[in-house]
């Protein structure tokens, strides 16, 4: 159960008030008729599924009914930031990795160990 900050209501609200609407920043081609079938197919059907930083579109469905974006870590489920429609994220996969760089030496060392620890999660 996420606790999501609604940038319009200005406070955290329970997940059950929201609907997730998939990957953020999928914009409709300006001139659909000018796109190739492949480009149109990409727009319709292809989405990212990253392990790590992901930008998502959500709507405060039982609330202010406004859409907004969330940058969320798909492993820890931590919501790194929320931002309104039309705004750009300040945290991206690239700069997040750089930010975590300091601690990465540590992680490398633990990686071999992690291999043994990660079992089947059922």
């Amino acid at each position: 159960m996420f606790y999501i900050f609604c940038p319009y209501c200005g406070e955290h609200r329970e997940e059950e008030e929201f609907h997730p609407k998939g990957q953020a920043h999928i914009s409709r081609p300006e001139d659909p008729e000018a796109t190739s079938d492949e480009e149109w197919g990409d727009y319709l059907f292809f989405r990212d599924n990253p392990r790590g930083v992901h930008h998502e579109l959500w709507v405060h469905a039982v609330g202010c009914r406004k859409f907004f974006n969330i940058t969320r870590h798909t492993v820890s489920y931590e919501i790194l930031e929320v931002y309104k429609m039309g705004e750009q994220p300040s945290i991206t996969a690239e700069n997040y990795a750089a930010q975590q760089g300091a601690a990465s030496a540590d992680k490398e060392r633990n990686a071999s160990q992690a291999k043994h620890q990660e079992g089947v999660r059922a």
Partner: peptide, 13 residues
């Protein structure tokens, strides 16, 4: 209603 809103809010504000 949510469909109308998503198009209005995200594509055609």
């Amino acid at each position: 209603l949510e469909w109308l809103e998503i198009w209005h809010q995200t594509e055609w504000p």
